[in-house]
Design a binder for these strands. Structure first.
Length: 293
DNA sequence: AATGATCTCAACCGCGAGCAG
DNA sequence: GCTGCTCGCGGTTGAGATCAT
């Protein structure tokens, strides 16, 4: 779709996947596991680029993906996580079992940002729109329309125009979280090496099949990642009823240095806080700040 | 029923991190 | 330390679906 193919992809099939392609990819991954995306399409008999295969698998074909019907609980969690992590969709998705970063990103852009806006909250800063508007009006000479009017006007504009008008409304897009995105759910298995189960896996079935599993997050990386973000982590047991993470259920793998325990407790405590209702938000923010020092 | 506007989401792209040589 | 390769991430696009007139 969309843009012109880059030169290396000339001759490859693009656009929506056919059932046959899905089957080929699924069978190949079931037999050989994930990874080696670059060489996979040829081996699997697909006329696709490796990126496309990876994306299709990650976002659509891999087992245990929940589709649609994002629950109010998940809604709430996404909003909270976004307020802490910003647009780090893979991190957010990592904390919502069965959800993909692409799905959450789409859901945010199409539903949650509008929802927040309609509630008078700036979806970028998670502050009240009135505050943002005040800041904006100080920098910018009066634009007479209210934010609501802006939204209505936007409806009649093309999408590109729409995003431009939003950009005008928010002259300085504040990122909630500054650190650049880093890889978090990739566990690099040395090439030509077999799967090592000394990892945390989202799916025991997948691990059993020996695939280089999606969402395998090495403990040390989680700790590091958590330290960077000032947030808890997703591992271990899920709350089966809600599909949400139960921070109290996770176990620390034996290879984790014991020196990390204090940090680990802090994060666990923080993540439990994250699941608490709205009124604890202020304390939560303070706690997050303290972790980021 | 026809047409245009708007919305949704699967898929694409470029960039940058991490690893191997 | 440098370079090239691979992979993962976030932003963006546009076809198809849905809604409004």
């Amino acid at each position: 779709m969309g843009r012109a193919p880059c030169c290396s992809k000339v001759g490859l099939h693009r656009g929506p996947w056919t059932p046959r392609e899905d089957t080929l990819l699924t069978k190949y991954i079931q037999a050989h596991g994930e990874g080696h995306w670059r060489s996979m399409p040829k081996r699997a008999g697909l006329l696709r680029c490796g990126k496309s295969c990876r994306l299709r698998w990650m976002n659509y074909l891999r087992p245990n993906i929940k589709r649609g019907n994002i629950s109010p609980d998940e809604d709430d969690l996404i909003i909270r996580l976004h307020s802490l992590l910003g647009n780090r969709w893979s991190l957010i998705a990592g904390r919502l079992p069965g959800r993909t970063d692409n799905e959450i990103k789409n859901y945010w852009n199409t539903h949650l940002s509008k929802k927040l806006r309609s509630q008078g909250t700036d979806p970028n800063t998670h502050k009240k729109l009135s505050e943002t508007a005040q800041l904006g009006s100080k920098r910018k000479n009066n634009s007479s329309s209210s934010s609501n009017n802006n939204n209505n006007n936007n409806k009649s504009k093309s999408r590109k125009q729409k995003s431009k008008s939003i950009a005008n409304l928010e002259p300085e897009k504040q990122k909630v979280h500054l650190p650049k995105a880093t890889r978090v759910n990739s566990f690099r298995i040395p090439r030509n090496e077999s799967f090592d189960c000394n990892t945390i896996s989202g799916s025991s079935d997948q691990a059993r099949e020996g695939s280089k599993v999606v969402n395998i997050i090495p403990w040390s990386e989680l700790i590091k990642d958590s330290a960077e973000n000032g947030i808890g982590f997703l591992v271990g047991g899920h709350d089966q009823d809600h599909g949400l993470v139960n921070g109290s259920n996770f176990e620390c793998p034996s290879h984790i240095p014991t020196g990390e325990n204090t940090l680990e407790k802090l994060y666990e405590e923080y993540f439990l806080e994250l699941l608490k209702p709205e009124e604890s938000q202020v304390e939560l923010d303070a706690f997050a700040e303290s972790l980021l020092i």
